[in-house]
Amino acid sequence: MKNSILTFLLIIFLTNIATAQFQSGESFVSGSFFNNLNSVSRTDNTPRFNAYNHYINLSVGKFVRDNRALGWGLTHSLSTASNSALQPEPTLLRDISFGIERFAEYYKSLNDKFALYARPALNLGYAFKNSNAVEQNLVVYESKINTISISAGISAGVVWRVSPKWALYGGFAFLNPISVGYEFSETENFQNKYPNGENVKSTGNAVTYAFSPNLSSGSIGLGFRYFYGGK
């Protein structure tokens, strides 16, 4: 099934290549980034609230043939939140992840400035997450979850070559059919105590796998790319 999907995308993107917009030998560095800070504090006694998150993606690659590139990518994300209304106050760090990916890119030119691309990729990721459940401002439990996952996917989008050195990328279709993950976690239960007053703690292990041939549009991501080398 996966082979057929790959073949399908290859057929679309490799047939009828009119002009080689991306030439063999060109190298590139590309990146995308977002960050977000939200802070509410007041002089009266009402609770304060802070949230911050960011996402960074960096990739490097080289066109091994006209309209075909191979490369490596790194992703990192961080999310923190504090909310003094909750008791006991949950850990500031909510989410941190690191990922490495190996990707290939196939292009089909639309005209001399725009092209479509398909990008199959293999990902290896690690994520740490503090997850909690809240009931009427009381934290019921907090789990520290570590996840290691491997996934294979394809994304597609449109690229606008603004100048010979610069291009703008926008992804609009994402397919992540295959994923396998291992997870180990530690949970502290704040409302379930031993007779000596200590919170009940437990550990967990999980293995997950999924095959789902769903194409999603996700949120449209934009990225920049700088080209160097080549002719």
């Binding site: 009940v200 703690k201 437990s202 967990g204 292990n205 997950t208 095959f211």
Partner: peptide
């Protein structure tokens, strides 16, 4: 076709 699964163990 789509399929998924999970095996999980929790220990106090």
């Amino acid at each position: 076709i789509s399929f998924e699964g999970q095996t999980k163990k929790d220990k106090e």
